[in-house]
Design a protein around this nucleic acid. Structure first.
Length: 401
RNA sequence: GGUGAGUUACUCAAGCGGCCAAAGAGGGCAGACUGUAAAUCUGCUGGUUUUUACCUUCGAAGGUUCGAAUCCUUCACUCACCA
């Protein structure tokens, strides 16, 4: 078994804020003493999931709770998704049809069960209970709260003061999310720091509805993306997806700055804080090269989402390309009709967006054929097989006929 | 509905008749240096084998002019103030 103190410490790791630590302690004690399970809830968008490491910070925390007796209530917000979460940007969204939702749910499972234990996870759709509420139920829900308090919320407040529109349906979002907690009798809810208001709403509503529970709330920070500044997101293209192939994943982790590496260690690694501190100390006193520390992390993560073997291969491959400056073993192959101008060929195989761009890169010495820098901008490729390279990362094998 | 301001390249933002493919910053790409990065320095950043040239771009469509991102007209959208 485990010690409550240790469990609490592990739970609090990396969190931005915990509300009602006492409750968590009680739940853990009840599990330890009587084997009693409890419910930990987290909600997700119903749109097509493409999870990245930013999401996994939260999901890993859910997995941790499973280790300590929790049943995870994994909610797909197919109803609330229609409104659009006012946290951050807002645009009223269309309701996704049943088929799409089912498909997305399946995709969620594939990705999420790389971390979560399926036996201790319930996948739930909130339209199931919200649609049953009906008009009167909804009305009742709205009486539990008032506009003034809604407007206390920072983003509403900002928009109200600056006279930006707030749709009434947006007021419903936190209420409905809170109602999820009422219906499911959740004991703990996890979410990002941006979700604070919504998370606390669950607590409030549980009290109002007399569920005899007031969920504890745990907020996880938003993980920084590879640029080290903005939060990780797909649109900023600073993310590492859980579905990325091992080599890409490895390379992306390694491309994080040294500073960022420690943040990733804290939030993504399963190493204990002591172990991490140890590594850090070794890097500081010079006994461990920072690159090796980063490699360890990259290997751990690739192993988690693929396997150990592939992680080793990814590592070897990476070092092959970067350290020994060799050509990656698995590169795309193209066939072209020769003779062909080098710039044209680069465009044809999509290594360059335009011949102008290709010319520029050739002039700058960024283009190599069979590891040899191309000096002549007018170079024609005649028959044969060549390895073309632009910069450090882009490769292609070309067969000219 | 009225009045005023605006709409420029990936983003922000100068330009306000010719020297404008359009300043500057950010981002991106590349080179050097490294540990793969970060930091730093440098170059590039609409297209085209006529590359000190040509073609297309400054919200859209017309117009004035030898010449328009720049002036005029209409339209669309955004913002501010007033109703």
């Amino acid at each position: 078994m485990f010690k409550i103190e240790d469990a609490l410490k592990e739970i609090s790791r990396g969190t931005a804020e915990i509300i009602d630590n006492e409750r968590i302690k009680k739940l853990l004690t009840a599990y330890l003493d009587e084997g009693k399970n409890y419910y930990v809830k987290a909600g997700f968008d119903p749109t097509a999931p493409d999870l990245h490491f930013g999401h996994t910070v939260l999901i890993q925390k859910l997995a941790l709770f499973q280790k300590y007796g929790a049943i995870v209530q994994f909610i797909i917000g197919d109803f609330t998704g229609m409104i659009g979460d006012p946290s951050g940007r807002s645009d009223t969204r269309k309701k996704l049809d049943k088929e799409t939702v089912a498909q997305n749910a399946k995709s969620y499972k594939e990705q999420v069960f790389k971390i979560l234990d399926p036996k201790k996870t319930e996948i739930l759709f909130n339209s199931h209970w919200i649609e049953k509420l009906g008009a009167s139920g909804l009305l009742e829900l709205t009486t539990t709260f008032n506009v003034a308090r809604m407007l206390e919320r920072e983003d509403f407040d900002k928009r109200y003061k600056s006279q930006a529109p707030i749709s009434i349906s947006e007021f419903l979002y936190p209420l409905l999310q809170g109602y999820d907690s009422v219906f499911l009798k959740s004991d703990i809810e996890l979410g990002g720091t941006d979700q604070k208001f919504n998370l606390l709403m669950g607590r409030t509503l549980q009290r109002t509805y007399g569920t005899k529970k007031e969920q504890a709330v745990i907020m996880m920070p938003l993980l920084e993306g590879l640029d080290g500044v903005n939060k990780m997101s797909k649109s900023l293209n600073n993310y590492i997806g859980v579905n990325e192939n091992p080599n890409t994943m490895f390379a992306k982790v390694l491309s994080a700055s040294d500073e960022l590496m420690w943040r990733y260690y804290e939030l993504l690694s399963t190493k204990t804080l002591e172990e991490i501190e140890n590594l850090k100390q070794q890097v500081i006193d010079g006994s461990l090269h920072p690159k090796l520390a980063k490699e360890q992390l990259a290997q751990e993560l690739v192993t988690r989402y693929h396997d150990e073997n592939l992680a080793q291969i990814a590592k070897d491959e990476f070092n092959k390309i970067h350290k020994q400056k060799e050509i990656p073993s698995d590169i795309e192959e193209f066939q072209l009709q020769g003779p062909i101008w080098i710039a044209k060929a680069l465009v044809d195989i999509k290594l360059e967006p335009s011949t102008s761009g290709a010319r520029r890169d050739i002039k700058q010495g960024a283009v190599k054929i069979n590891q040899e820098k191309v000096e002549d901008e007018q170079l024609q490729l005649t028959s044969g097989t060549f390895i073309l390279q632009v910069g450090k990362r882009k490769f292609a094998r070309v067969k000219v006929l």
